[in-house]
Each structure stands twice: as structure tokens, then as C-alpha cells.
């Protein structure tokens, strides 16, 4: 084993200037802008949901939509803060209140008007299109977020990965809520909640190891 003095001198001789990270709030804001731009692009590409005019009058829908976007934004701020060693862990709680609004949408949809799946409804092609939207949103967002978070070399890789995955899942669901009509509330769970959970799990599990500092 090298002595600590030798280690210090070797670290000092191989020292190269580094570019300082911008403040976490600024980096989070950049990513949120990117995510929002991507959502707008996806809406332009695939078109707004056909019943948008009805939806705009439905407070439950609006609460869910706002909740999803705000959850994504809050989780992004939390992820960039938690990726730095000296920021408090309590940042992880920031998205919780917004997530409550977002998730309340699922519950409300299920409880208030349980709509049976209409006979002969094109369930499978619809869900494939939904999945396409979710993947098109979450894949690029997740990749960019991973690259940005990795620059900080987070010392809390698991927490950073989970909260980052929540941000990606929430923004992907925002796009999904804007584009797809999902009326049948049984389907809401399958088409919406399951992929969102998958994005969360995948991002969290992949991220916690790939974000970690080499040991």
C-alpha cells in the first residue's frame, strides 16, 4: 500500500484544471426546458388527444396533468441537488406533494367513473401507440439526464437514480396524458401506471450502479 504522502503528491502532480459544475438549480432548469420541449415536439408529431376540449373542462384531468409535470420538475431539482455531496437528503421529499396530485388522477379516474372497456374497442393498437409515446419520451430524456447527473459523480447514486427516474417517468406521463385518450379506467392502470412504474424501476436499478463512483 502507498503511503498517504505518496498518494497526495501523485494526486497533485496529475492535477488538471476542471470545469466547475453550474449550480444544480440552473442545470435542473435546463433539463426541464429540454423535457418540456420534447413533450411539445411529441404533441406536434402525434397530435393532441381528440377529446382535448372536454378534458380542459375536467378539473380532475387538469390536476393530474399539472401534477405530472410538477412532479417531474420537482424531482429534477431534487435529483441535481442530491447528486452533490453537501446538499441535504430532504430534497428527496420535494416531489411528494405534486406526486400526490399526479397519482390522485389515477385513483379518481378509477373511482369516479369506472368505464368498462367498450366492446370491439381497438385495445391493442391503442396500447402499442401509448407505449411508443412513453418510450419516445423516456428514452432520450433518461439518457440526457443520466449524462448530466453523471458529471457530478454522485456519492448517493441510488437516491439520485431513483429520483431521476421519477422525473423521467413523470415527464413521459405528461406527454402521454396530452396525446392519448385513455377512458377505460381499467386500462388507465395497465397502460399508464404499469409502464410508468417500469420506467421508474428500470431507471432506478440501472442508474444506481452506473452512476456510482468506481470503488
Amino acid at each position: 500500500m502507498r503511503s498517504t504522502e505518496e498518494l497526495i503528491s501523485s494526486l497533485a502532480t496529475e492535477l488538471a484544471p476542471v470545469r466547475r459544475l453550474k449550480p444544480p438549480a440552473l442545470r435542473a432548469l435546463r433539463w426541464i426546458l429540454l423535457a418540456t420541449a420534447l413533450i411539445v415536439a411529441l404533441v406536434l408529431l402525434r397530435g393532441l388527444r381528440t377529446d382535448m376540449s372536454d378534458c380542459l373542462r375536467d378539473p380532475a384531468y387538469l390536476v393530474q396533468l399539472a401534477g405530472a409535470w410538477l412532479t417531474g420538475a420537482a424531482a429534477t431539482f431534487a435529483a441535481f441537488e442530491v447528486s452533490l455531496p453537501d446538499r441535504p437528503r430532504s430534497w428527496l421529499l420535494l416531489p411528494l406533494p405534486f406526486a400526490a396530485f399526479w397519482l390522485s388522477g389515477f385513483a379518481y379516474g378509477c373511482l369516479a367513473d369506472w368505464v368498462a372497456i367498450p366492446a370491439g374497442a381497438p385495445v391493442i393498437p391503442d396500447s402499442v401507440r401509448c407505449l411508443e409515446t412513453l418510450i419516445m419520451a423516456s428514452l432520450p430524456l433518461g439518457l440526457v439526464l443520466w449524462i448530466m447527473l453523471r458529471r457530478a459523480r454522485p456519492l448517493r447514486p441510488a437516491a439520485t437514480a431513483w429520483i431521476g427516474a421519477l422525473a423521467v417517468a413523470a415527464f413521459a406521463d405528461t406527454a402521454h396524458l396530452l396525446i392519448h385518450v385513455v377512458e377505460a379506467s381499467a386500462l388507465v392502470l395497465v397502460i399508464n401506471l404499469v409502464p410508468v412504474t417500469l420506467i421508474l424501476l428500470l431507471g432506478g436499478l440501472l442508474g444506481r450502479h452506473s452512476l456510482a463512483l468506481a470503488r
Partner: peptide, 14 residues
């Protein structure tokens, strides 16, 4: 700890 400081020194905000 010294090695970690070295590899995350870009994350310190002066």
C-alpha cells in the same frame, strides 16, 4: 476520501 475528493473536485462550488 482523498481519491474521492480528487475525482469529484468539479462538483465543489467555491
Amino acid at each position: 476520501i482523498l481519491l474521492t475528493i480528487h475525482s469529484i473536485r468539479q462538483s465543489y462550488d467555491p
